[in-house]
């Protein structure tokens, strides 16, 4: 059961989860950017992620590169199937990525780059939600290739997933700001987090109920033995974490909402995982079928075992260097 391809599926899932959390909060800041009170607050919000966003986005490259390397067949099927959302996501990431630097270089067009940052973040998030939705919804495969049309991904369900992820990232972004800032900006972030928190919870409910109707195979898997023992605690824990988030937001415990939100994301991720394993293209191609030969997987595993801990170490160090609240005074240059 535990073979190289399973280990790689786990590592890839871990990379994607780390990506979702890390880029999730900095994309989320882009999503809520126009809802901040003034330019000073927007400057502080952007500064709170400026030193780390490159690193956060690198996990996306590992996700794409890792899929290509470990599961080339899955990569070759999923990418053409989700052609338009991926291209839109990539272009949106280009817009918001350059805005980090351009905003400071061109005071005259600051508003333009703020808009690029906001819409880029929003579109990238929305497209990632669509990718997630399309993945659950299923992909048509014939032989070793995608066999559907190039608009198959578009459906009410995938658009709902797009909105759901937007709400989720906005919650991550606003709770990150609560943790990193003070005064007016923090107050605003609290207000935004309460709204995005409600929206996130609502969407988790909608998608969770919709998924088994859309994909009977996921439903069957959720209800089958022994999966059901893993599935049952998920909704209960979700409610517990939602309550903790709400408590942190009302009692103004600055660090609690962000950490609890990460937990919420973790549970959703686990729920999805239980519903689709051992498939990598849900219910068509299994992890084993898509895996590169063992000689590729073992060669990479050596690197991953050496470098992933190092990467996590110096990433943590970088976060530690820029730890604590950002001094808002420094924003008034």
């Amino acid at each position: 059961m535990i073979d190289l391809s399973t280990i790689w599926a786990g590592l890839l899932a871990l990379s994607i989860f780390i990506y979702v959390i890390l880029d999730g909060f900095d994309l989320g800041i882009g999503v809520i950017f126009p809802f901040l009170d003034n330019d000073d607050d927007r400057a502080i919000a952007m500064n709170s992620v400026a030193p780390v966003w490159d690193g956060n986005e690198t996990w996306l490259i590992l996700g794409g590169g890792g899929l290509f390397a470990a599961f080339p067949l899955a990569y070759a099927i999923i990418m053409p199937a989700l052609y338009a959302p991926f291209i839109a996501m990539i272009l949106a990431l280009v817009f918001r990525g350059v805005a980090f630097e351009y905003r400071w270089r061109d005071k005259r067009h600051e508003k333009t780059w703020d808009r690029a940052f906001h819409f880029g973040s929003f579109v990238a998030t929305f497209m990632q939600g669509i990718v997630l939705g399309a993945f659950i919804q299923g992909i048509e495969v014939e032989g070793r290739a995608y066999a559907g049309g190039w608009w198959d991904w578009a459906s009410p369900f995938t658009f709902t997933c797009g909105l759901a992820l937007t709400a989720g990232y906005a919650l991550l972004g606003s709770t990150w700001l609560i943790m990193k800032t003070e005064n007016g900006l923090r107050d605003r972030a609290y207000a935004i987090a309460k709204n995005t928190g409600r929206a996130t919870l609502l969407f988790i409910g909608i998608v969770s109920i919709w998924t088994p109707f859309l994909s009977p195979k996921i439903a069957a898997q959720w209800l089958s033995f022994p999966h059901i023992f893993f599935v049952l605690p998920v909704p209960i824990l979700t409610l517990v974490l939602a309550a903790i988030t709400a408590w942190g937001l009302t009692k103004r415990k600055d660090n609690v909402p962000f950490l609890a939100t990460i937990g919420l994301f973790g549970l959703c991720f686990a729920g999805l995982g239980i519903g689709v394993t051992p498939y990598i293209v849900p219910h068509v191609i299994t992890i084993q079928q898509a895996a590169a030969p063992d000689v590729s997987l073992s060669f990479m595993l050596v690197g991953a075992l050496i470098f992933l801990p190092l990467i996590l170490g110096y990433t943590a160090y970088s976060y530690w260097v820029f730890r604590g609240k950002i001094d808002p005074k420094a924003g008034y240059h």
Binding site: E57, T58, G65, A76, A292, S296, Y314, S318, V321
Partner: peptide
């Protein structure tokens, strides 16, 4: 080509991209 080229690119991400991006902030 994934089984051959993929691992080389995975190594690029693991040994280089993260190194650059991780220390760039500092």
């Amino acid at each position: 080509t994934g089984p051959v080229i993929g691992p080389l690119m995975a190594y690029e991400v693991l040994t280089a991209f993260f190194l650059e991006a991780g220390f760039l902030g500092v």
